[in-house]
Nucleic acid binder design. Structure first.
Lengths: 144, 144
DNA sequence: ATTGTTGCAAATATTTTGCATCAAT
DNA sequence: ATTGATGCAAAATATTTGCAACAAT
C-alpha cells in the first residue's frame, strides 16, 4: 500500500468529514454544503466539492455513483450486470448470468426488514478497463 | 400490467431507439444525440432527452444510474449494499451482509473472461421507499 | 519561501422546460 | 379540432476550475 497522504486535515475538511459521517442518509454535495455552512458560514461550494473528492480518494468516505455523473442507456432490457471502469467511466456487459437464486431471496428478506417495495437489483463490478489498466501499469510497474 | 402506451412511435423516436439498440456500449445522451443527428440533422437535444425518458419508462431501453444525476456520499467505507428509491432517489443501507463468497468468485471469473482488472462490486436493490410506496398506493390502490 | 488550501466567481457540463409550430389522428 | 411531438432557446442543476489571498510548514 502506498501512503501518499499529502493532504492537510484542515478545519473545513474535518467538518465536511464529520457531516458525512454523522448521518446515514447518503447526502448529496449540496446537502453537505448546507450542513457545513451552518457551522462554517463562509465555506464555499467549491471547497466542499474539492474536499469530498479528496476525502473519497483517501478512503475516508465513499462516493456513490462514482465516476462520471452522466446517465447511460442500455438497449438490452434483459436482466444482466455491468462492469464499470472507475477511471474512464466505460460500461460493459458482464459476461455472467443473473444471480437470481441467491439475490432474489435477499430481495424478499429486505422487503420485510425494511419498508421498501423492492422489485429488482443491480450488480456492478468495479474495476479498470483494459485501456486504463495499461495506463496505470506505466506508473505502478515492476512490483511483481 | 397496465398498457398505457400512449406514445407515438415517431420517426425520431424510432431512430433514437435504433441507435441505443445498435450498440453494446451504453451510450450517454450526448453520444446518442451525435449519432442520431447524423441521420436526422435537425433533431434537437431536448427531443433526444425526452425520448430516452419515454423509451425507458415504456421498457424499450434501460437507464443506467437511474433517477437523480447527483452524486451521493457515504461516511461508511465498510463493504455494504444500498437500497435505492427509484422515485425520489433516496439511498439507504441494505441491512444485509456482503455476498462475498458467491460474488467474489464471480469477480475472479470475470477478471479472466474480460481483460478488466476487477477489484470490487456494488449491489443495489431497486425499489420504492416507504414514503413513495404510500404515494403510489393512492393511484394503484384496490387491486388486492 | 514553498506548497497546499480557501473563498469567490466564472466556466463547464448535464438535464429539463416553456413555447410556438408541426403531425397524426 | 385535439393531442402529442418537435425544434429551438432559455433555464435549471450539478460539477469543475482559475486565481488571488491565506495558512501551515
Amino acid at each position: 500500500m502506498n501512503s501518499s497522504r499529502i493532504s492537510r486535515m484542515t478545519h473545513q475538511r474535518k467538518v465536511i468529514l464529520e457531516e458525512v459521517r454523522n448521518t446515514h442518509s447518503h447526502l448529496s454535495a449540496d446537502e453537505i454544503y448546507a450542513r457545513v455552512r451552518k457551522r462554517l458560514p463562509r465555506v464555499s461550494l467549491g471547497t466542499v466539492y474539492r474536499n469530498l473528492d479528496i476525502l473519497a480518494s483517501e478512503g475516508f468516505i465513499r462516493k456513490l455513483e462514482p465516476g462520471h455523473p452522466q446517465m447511460r442507456f442500455d438497449g438490452n432490457t434483459e436482466d444482466h450486470y455491468h462492469i464499470i471502469c472507475i477511471n474512464c467511466g466505460n460500461v460493459e456487459d458482464a459476461p455472467t448470468a443473473p444471480l437470481d437464486d441467491s439475490v432474489e431471496g435477499l430481495e424478499k428478506i429486505l422487503g420485510n426488514l425494511t419498508r421498501y417495495g423492492i422489485f429488482g437489483h443491480r450488480l456492478e463490478f468495479i474495476g479498470l478497463c483494459p485501456a486504463c489498466m495499461e495506463e496505470k501499469e506505466k506508473y505502478f510497474d515492476t512490483e511483481t
